[in-house]
Design a protein around this nucleic acid. Structure first.
Length: 683
DNA sequence: GAGCACTGC
């Protein structure tokens, strides 16, 4: 195999060299390619990363693992795969992969690189995300993909043999699949010495990745098989302002700061980070009210909310260009930290908090709590002010409290339900998941809880081995383990068609448009006394029949069009799996008893009984629970329910409930409830 | 009795 050697000229490189020029001129000229007079190749050479091109290629050649530290905007994501391609790493049918934690990033970066290489997207340069494979198995040389997709490929080809280089981008975010891949690649690299791994991280974690991959234990650097390189960024400087004294109400302080900036600072839009919808809607309202007291001659101010629960149309408003006489204030959740980038932001107001979801293995409950952000998050938020010109960040906390923040937030692996991780690792032949080499091992309680759940679902046998076929099928199924079990068992109740719809609707969030008075009214039209699952089934069926799958109909009924479209895609995908598993695709008509019994066959562990005061207790542990106000069963008197999940916010709330007959628990989950039969009423 | 950070397969 012919590799490019340091010092030699790589294929396709000679032309670049001749036109190489010193950088340092006005950056703005190539920030916007449409007004640039430079060719694409010249623009590429003007990126700060170009200066490190040879060094990066040298390290990748010499070391099996290279850790690249580089700020957003340095060009690593678009350039490094191209450098590797130019240097011959894609010859002989091999592919360079670059993973992203988010779908949009994978598609937009692939689009950009295809333009730079002047090729058709989906041919030499492609992408692969759920529901969308825009790549060609024979032609694609550079493949951008979500980390979850690359992980799924390991289920088919455990050594990922078609890839010569695998670049894990944004590794500092420590998403669940990034962490699994980081662990798996350590195993794969032992079996494939020719494979090269690039871990790209924006921050302080770099050293930890290096330690994880470097197999050299002696004190002689020349024996290292991992290396680190830092790349220069291309951000504009951001002035940091702290509070002198801590504040007690950061929402009020944020509003005051917005007006301070508005009345004292030059033009430029403002981005405010708060933690959730309530705070955001409150701030938007207050800013609107107080703006009326501004002098008529002053610059106008337009507050805009931004969070995931809004419809696509509502979200698009933040991208509308601002009229000359107006300053835009975007008030956002953490969604604006990495997922959505808004151009033109010059001022950032950072409250210093974020809502974090964490899984408690003792109770099996998830909590959603407001916690301090990490230093890395604070840095990322500040960076949002330095994309177009020099910016300012106003941190609504003291400098001392900043230094008390954790360096990085807790990796998802440390705070998630690990049932799917356990299933998938076992499907890869990694039986002892407790001893799998994770960069940061998850707490043992999380692992044990996952093993217990999988055992109760009969996905694991008495020896902790994956059962055949159920365990293997659940490992492959891109759906929550309990829902997967329900889908596979649906043939027993002749209701696969109904369960496919329910599973798809449960897998998406925000079916009903939030914070609209129409919603409650609209929801009542679809609501049934059996509960949320069958209500969701009704909504979906109405959408595809009466609603003719149209956005207009959704709008009229307070439903989120994009969410329902996504539910259709998921349903389609899940249907393919059921066909492959030979589950007969029957419909039970409108037999809600069959549907609810089928739900019990998977959700038996999540059962609760109502108390005289209207609260609930779990049957398993007698833990107090409440009906979430978004449920159609909220304020209704019912006796026994099963639920999809519990999320603790102000109280532990059950979400997505269905009314059941307790006799079904004994009938369908005797292995789980046998020892507690006395707790069930006699029938 | 009154409320839902964000991704991903």
């Amino acid at each position: 195999m012919a590799f490019w050697k340091p010092g030699a000229t790589a294929p396709g490189v000679s032309l670049d060299r001749e036109t190489e020029k010193e950088t340092g001129e006005n950056f703005i000229t190539f920030v916007n390619p449409s007004v640039s007079t430079f060719s694409i190749q010249q623009q590429r050479q003007r990126l700060p990363i170009f200066k490190s091109r040879d060094h990066v290629l040298y390290l990748v050649e010499k070391y099996q693992t290279t850790i690249i530290v580089g700020q957003t905007g340095c060009g690593k994501t678009t350039q490094i795969p191209q450098y590797l391609h130019e240097a011959g790493w894609t010859s002989g049918g091999r592919v360079v992969a670059c993973t992203q934690p988010r779908r949009v990033a994978a598609t937009t970066v692939a689009q950009r690189v295809a333009e730079e290489m002047n090729v058709q997207l989906g041919e030499e340069v492609g992408y692969s995300i759920r529901f969308e494979d825009c790549s060609d198995p024979h032609k694609t040389r550079i493949k951008y993909m979500t980390d979850g997709m690359l992980f799924r490929e390991t289920l088919i080809d455990p050594l990922l043999s078609q890839y010569s280089v695998i670049m894990i981008d944004e590794a500092h975010e420590r998403s669940l699949y990034t962490d699994i891949l980081v662990g798996l690649l350590k195993k794969i690299k032992k079996k494939r010495p020719e494979l090269r791994i690039i871990i790209s991280s924006a921050t302080l974690d770099a050293e930890a990745f290096y330690e994880f991959y470097n197999t050299n234990t002696i004190n002689d650097k020349s024996k290292d098989d991992a290396s680190i390189i830092s790349l220069e960024g291309r951000m504009f400087p951001v002035d940091i302002h702290y509070l002198e004294d801590p504040c007690s109400d950061y929402v009020e302080k944020a509003i005051q700061t917005v007006f301070d900036i508005h009345t004292k600072q030059p033009v430029g839009d403002i981005l405010v980070f708060l933690t959730g919808r309530d705070e955001i809607e409150h701030a938007v309202q207050e800013i609107t009210d107080r703006a009326t007291t501004l002098p008529r001659s002053a610059l106008k101010i337009t507050p805009l909310p931004l969070y995931a629960g809004l419809t696509a149309e509502q979200q698009m408003l933040v991208f509308e260009p601002t009229p000359r006489s107006t300053r835009k204030v975007i008030i956002a959740t953490t969604i604006a930290e990495a997922s959505i980038t808004i151009e033109g932001i010059v001022y950032v107001v950072d409250c210093g908090f974020v809502k974090i979801r964490a899984y408690n293995p003792k109770t099996g409950m998830e909590s959603l709590t407001v916690t301090s952000i990490s230093k890395a998050s604070a840095q990322q938020r500040a960076g949002r002010a330095g994309r177009v010109r020099q910016g300012k960040v106003y941190r609504l906390y003291t400098e001392d409290s900043f230094y008390e923040f954790q360096d990085a937030s807790v990796p998802e692996m440390q705070r998630s339900n690990l049932a799917p991780v356990v299933l998938q690792l076992k499907a890869l032949g990694i039986d002892n998941v407790l001893r799998f080499d994770f960069m940061t091992s998850p707490p043992a309680e999380l692992m044990i809880r996952a093993l217990e759940l999988l055992y109760s679902l009969k996905a694991l046998d008495d020896y902790g081995r994956l059962t055949v076929p159920l365990g293997m099928q659940l490992a492959e199924f891109p759906v929550d383990s309990m829902l997967g079990k329900i889908l596979i068992d649906s043939y027993k109740f002749n209701c696969a068609e109904e369960m496919l719809t329910i599973a798809a609707m449960i897998s998406v969030q925000n079916v009903f448009v939030l914070s609209s008075s129409k919603v409650d009214e609209s929801k009542r039209k679809f609501a049934v006394e059996e509960g949320d699952h069958i209500t969701l089934l009704n909504v979906y069926n109405a959408f595809v029949t009466r609603g003719k799958k149209s956005g207009r109909w959704c709008h009229e009924h307070g439903l989120n069009f994009r969410t329902l479209q996504r539910a259709m895609s998921i349903r389609q995908q899940l249907t393919k799996y059921l066909k492959r598993f030979d589950v007969p695709l029957e419909s039970c008509g409108n037999d809600t008893v069959k549907i609810r019994k089928c739900l019990v066959s998977g959700y038996f562990a999540n059962a609760a009984k109502m108390m005289p005061d209207g609260s609930f207790r779990t049957i398993r542990d007698n833990v107090e629970l409440h009906v979430h106000p978004s449920s159609v069963l909220f304020t209704r008197a019912v006796e026994w329910v099963i639920f999809h999940e519990v999320v603790e916010t102000t109280k532990p709330f059950m979400r997505d409930l269905t009314v059941i007959d307790p006799a079904w628990l004994a009938e369908l989950a005797p292995h789980f409830y046998e020892f507690k039969k006395s707790a069930l009423p006699k029938h």
